[in-house]
Design a protein around this nucleic acid. Structure first.
Length: 709
RNA sequence: GGGCGUUUAGCUCAGCUGGUUAGAGCGUUGCAUUCACAUUGCAAAGGUCGCUGGUUCGAAUCCAGCAACGCCCACCA
C-alpha cells in the first residue's frame, strides 16, 4: 500500500494518455454532430492530408497533425462544429510497389498471378497493414472524426472518382494520344512530371558527326545519349545560326543506321550549347517529340518499355540502353565519326518511387486538358477566395498553374481506379465511357467490349478529397471546409488540384485557407529519410516522454521556416507538462471547495496583474491561432504560465493565502487562472490538461476538450 | 537560366509595420531548496545581429551590392 505522498510527484504521461484518448473517442465528440453546440453553430472543417496506406508515422506527420489538431481543438472550444476529416490514400504506385516486393520474396511476380488475384493480394495487404498509420496518428492525440474515415478506393469514393472522369469526358476535357512520357522501366508505368526526382550525374557530352547525304562534312551534333541516335529522324539547329544556314533543308546521313535525315530549323535550339546542332529523337525525348510535331517528323522508337533496345536497333537489339550506349560509341569510334567527348554534369531524371532512371518513351496515354481548370484555380487565388499563407507560396502556385501542360492521368499499373473506358475489340480506336460495361458494343455490335487496363493517377482521386471524402448529406453540411494545412511539396501536386476540382464539381472552392508549414529536417539541415538513415521515429518521443511533449516540441519549432529538429525541445515540452501538472496540484491543494469557475475579483495588486495578463494572453492567443501562428502562441502561453503564473503569482499567492484578509479571493483567482490556462493550453497539450481537468473538484463540462474557450 | 528562402548567444531558433540595457529553449557557471514542481527556484557569464555601402535624429529591423548555404521551378541536348 503505497502512500500518495511517497509517490513521485512527476507527471507521467504513460499513465494517462491512452485512457484519456479512449475516453475522448468513446464520448463521440470528435464527431461534430455530437457536440453540445447551438443549432446555429458554424462548421469548421480541416481536411487531413491523406496518409498513404503504406505509410508509417514520420516527423512530417507529427508536425502536420499537431498543427491541425491545435486548430481544430481551438475551433471546437470556440463553439464550432469542428470536423477534422481523416482518410487514407490508396497510393497506387507506392502500394503496388510494396506488395510486389513482398510477393517477390515469396517468388511470385504479379504477371504470373494475374490482375484480379494481384489486386486481391493488395486488398489483403491493405486490410492488414493499412490501418497502422491511423493507430499511430491516434498516439499523437489527434481529434479526427474516425467515424467518417474514408479510403480513396472505398465504394462510394470510387464512384465519385469514376463520375469525375465521365464528367470530364463529357466536357471534352479528356483525350487519348500517343506522347512521349516519362516512363519508369522498373515500375512499368508512366509518371507525371511531379513524380520525377532529379539527381546530378557525371557523364559526357559526345560530339558526333553526321556526314552530308551526298558527301561533304555534314554536321556535328552534341548529345548525352548517343544510343538514341538509332531513332533519330532529324537534326535541328537554330534558324538564326549562321554556321548552319546553308545546311537547313538539306539531308545528312545518320551513321550506323545509314538513313537520310533532314536538317531542320527550330527556335527551341540554343546555338550556344554544344555544337548548336541537336539530334532529334522524337520517340525518346520530350523536347524532341515537340520538335518532331512541329516539323512533322516520323517517330522511330528504339527503346522498349523495359529499357531495352528494340529490333529496329539492328545489332544492338536486346541490349539495355546503357550497354547500347557503349556499343554505339565503339562503333562510331571505328567509323571515325566520334569527334570529341567532354565531361559533363547534368540532371538525370529518376523515379521518385524506386530511383530507377527514367526512360522517355512514346506510349498511348490519357490526358486531361488543363487550360480551363488551371485558370479556375488561378482565379480562385487571385480573387482571394482561397488564401495561401505564407504569401510567397502564392507565387509558386500561380507560376506552376500558368505554365501547366495537360495532365497525363493514366498509369500502367493495376492498383487503382481502372479507367471507365471500354473499347471495341474489333476496332481499338473506338471506345465508350461508362462505369458499367456496355451490354453490347455500339460499334461492331458483335464484340464483348474490353476495359482499358490503365488506372488513374492517384492524385486524380485525392484531388476530390474535400467532397468525395464526405457522404452526400455531409457535403451539404460540411462542404466547403475551412483549412488545408500541409507542406509545400504537395502544394501543386495536391492543393491546386483540389481547388479546381472543387470548383468544377461543387461550384465552390474547397477551403478558404491554405497554410503551408515547414519541413522537418535533421539538426544538420539534411532531409529526413529512411533510406539515408536520417529519419527519426516520432513514436520514440511519444512513448518515452508523452504526446504532449512531442507536440510541444514540434510546434515550438514550427516558426514557418524549415525545422532543424532539436530534441531538446521535447525535453522542454516534458518539463512544461510536468510544470503544468504540479502547478495544478498546488492550486487544487489550496482549493478546498472554492468555486472553480466563478468570475474572480482581484483584491491585491498581484491579483489584478495576473488577471490582466491572462486576459491579454488570451486575446493574443486567439489572434495568433486564427492566423496559424502557433509557435508564437505556444511561446506566449509558456511564458505566461511558467513565469507570470508560477514564478510570480503562485509565489505571491503563498503569502496571500496565509493572510486571512486575502486567502479566499486568492483561492478563487488561482482556480480561475488555472482553469483558463489549461483551456488555452489544451489545443497544444491536450493530454496533461485534460488529465488535470478530470481532477478538478468542479467541472463545467465532461471534458476539457469541449469546454468553452 | 529563373524564382524563393536562410545567415542573430556554444547549439536550435524568435525578433510583425525601424526607437530605451537584442530575447527563448537547450547548454555553461554560481547560489538556494523539507513548505506544488530538482522534469525546481534565484542569479550570472555569453552576441562587432554574414560582409560592404546607403536612407534616417536613430537599423538586427528599410534600400542597394557582395558572399555562403538551402529549396523550388525550367525542354539547354
Amino acid at each position: 500500500m503505497k502512500q500518495e505522498k511517497n509517490e513521485s510527484s512527476a507527471y507521467d504521461p504513460k499513465l494517462v494518455e491512452d485512457s484519456i484518448y479512449k475516453e475522448w473517442e468513446k464520448s463521440g465528440y470528435f464527431n461534430p454532430d455530437n457536440l453540445p453546440v447551438k443549432k446555429s453553430a458554424k462548421p469548421y472543417v480541416v481536411y487531413m492530408p491523406l496518409p498513404n496506406v503504406t505509410g508509417t508515422l514520420h516527423m512530417g506527420h507529427l508536425l502536420n497533425n499537431a498543427i491541425q489538431d491545435v486548430v481544430i481543438r481551438y475551433r471546437r472550444m470556440r463553439g464550432y462544429k469542428a470536423l477534422y476529416l481523416p482518410g487514407t490514400d490508396h497510393a497506387g504506385i507506392a502500394t503496388q510497389f510494396v506488395v510486389e516486393k513482398e510477393l517477390r520474396k515469396q517468388g511470385i511476380n504479379r504477371f504470373e498471378l494475374g490482375r484480379e488475384a494481384f489486386i486481391k493480394k493488395v486488398w489483403e495487404w491493405k486490410e492488414k497493414y493499412g490501418g497502422l498509420i491511423l493507430e499511430q496518428l491516434r498516439k499523437i492525440g489527434v481529434s479526427a472524426d474516425w467515424s467518417r474515415i474514408r479510403f480513396t478506393m472505398d465504394e462510394e469514393y470510387t464512384k465519385d472518382v469514376l463520375d469525375a472522369f465521365i464528367h470530364y469526358h463529357k466536357r471534352g476535357l479528356i483525350y487519348r494520344g500517343v506522347r512521349v512520357v516519362n516512363w519508369c522501366p522498373r515500375c512499368g508505368t508512366s509518371l507525371s512530371e511531379l513524380e520525377l526526382e532529379h539527381k546530378e550525374e557525371e557523364t559526357k557530352l559526345w560530339h558526333i558527326r553526321y556526314p552530308g547525304a551526298g558527301g561533304g562534312e555534314g554536321i556535328i551534333v552534341a548529345t548525352t545519349r548517343p544510343e538514341t541516335m538509332l531513332g533519330d529522324t532529324a537534326v535541328a539547329v537554330n534558324p538564326k545560326d549562321a554556321r548552319y544556314k546553308t545546311l537547313v533543308g538539306k539531308m545528312v546521313m545518320l551513321p550506323i543506321q545509314n538513313r537520310k535525315i533532314p536538317v531542320v530549323a527550330d527556335n527551341a535550339i540554343d546555338s550556344s550549347f554544344g555544337t548548336g546542332a541537336l539530334k532529334v529523337t522524337p520517340a525518346h525525348d520530350i523536347v524532341d517529340f515537340e520538335i518532331g510535331e512541329r516539323h512533322k517528323l516520323p517517330m522511330i522508337q528504339v527503346i522498349d518499355e523495359r529499357g531495352k533496345m528494340m529490333e529496329v536497333a539492328g545489332k544492338f537489339a536486346g541490349m539495355k540502353a546503357d550497354e547500347a550506349r557503349a556499343a554505339v560509341l565503339d562503333e562510331l569510334k571505328k567509323l571515325g565519326l566520334l569527334m570529341k567527348e567532354e565531361p559533363y554534369a547534368h540532371n538525370l531524371a529518376v523515379c521518385y518511387r524506386c530511383g530507377h532512371t527514367i526512360e522517355p518513351i512514346p506510349s498511348e496515354q490519357w490526358f486531361l486538358k488543363m487550360k480551363e481548370l488551371a485558370k479556375n484555380a488561378i482565379d480562385a487565388v487571385k480573387n482571394e477566395k482561397v488564401k495561401i499563407g505564407p504569401e510567397n507560396f502564392e507565387k509558386t502556385y500561380l507560376n506552376w498553374l500558368s505554365n501547366i501542360r495537360d495532365w497525363t492521368i493514366s498509369r500502367q499499373i493495376w492498383w487503382g481506379h481502372q479507367l471507365p473506358v471500354w473499347f471495341c475489340k474489333n476496332d481499338k480506336e473506338k471506345f465508350t465511357v461508362s462505369i458499367e460495361k456496355p451490354k453490347a458494343c455500339p460499334f461492331c455490335k458483335t464484340c464483348e467490349m474490353e476495359q482499358v487496363p490503365d488506372v488513374l493517377d492517384t492524385w486524380f482521386s485525392s484531388a476530390l478529397w474535400p467532397f468525395a471524402g464526405l457522404s452526400k448529406e455531409d457535403v451539404k453540411k460540411y462542404y466547403p471546409g475551412n483549412a488545408l494545412i500541409t507542406a509545400r511539396d504537395i502544394l501543386n501536386l495536391w492543393v491546386a488540384r483540389m481547388i479546381y476540382s472543387g470548383i468544377e464539381f461543387q461550384k465552390k472552392v474547397p477551403f478558404k485557407d491554405v497554410y503551408i508549414h515547414g519541413t522537418v529536417l535533421t539538426k544538420e539541415g539534411k532531409r529526413m529519410s529512411k533510406s539515408l538513415g536520417t529519419g527519426i521515429d516520432p513514436l520514440k518521443y511519444i512513448n518515452e516522454f508523452g504526446a504532449d511533449a512531442a507536440r510541444f516540441a514540434v510546434i515550438w519549432q514550427a516558426t514557418g521556416q524549415d525545422i532543424h529538429w532539436d530534441e531538446a525541445a521535447v525535453m522542454a515540452g516534458r518539463k512544461f507538462a510536468n510544470k503544468i501538472w504540479n502547478a495544478a496540484k498546488f492550486v487544487m491543494s489550496n482549493h478546498e471547495g472554492a468555486e472553480t469557475v466563478k468570475k474572480p475579483v482581484g483584491k491585491t495588486v498581484a491579483d489584478k496583474k495576473i488577471l490582466a495578463k491572462l486576459a491579454a494572453t488570451k486575446k493574443r492567443a486567439e489572434k495568433n491561432i486564427e492566423s496559424f501562428e502557433l509557435s508564437a502562441t505556444l511561446k506566449e502561453l509558456y511564458d505566461f504560465f511558467w513565469h507570470d503564473l508560477c514564478d510570480t503569482y503562485i509565489e505571491e499567492s503563498k503569502k496571500q493565502l496565509a493572510d486571512a484578509e486575502t486567502a479566499e479571493s486568492t483561492k478563487i483567482v488561482l482556480s480561475h487562472v488555472l482553469v483558463e490556462s489549461i483551456k488555452m493550453l489544451h489545443p497544444f497539450m491536450p493530454f496533461v490538461t485534460e488529465a488535470i481537468y478530470q481532477k478538478l473538484p468542479v467541472r463545467g463540462k465532461k471534458f476539457l476538450m469541449i469546454e468553452t474557450w
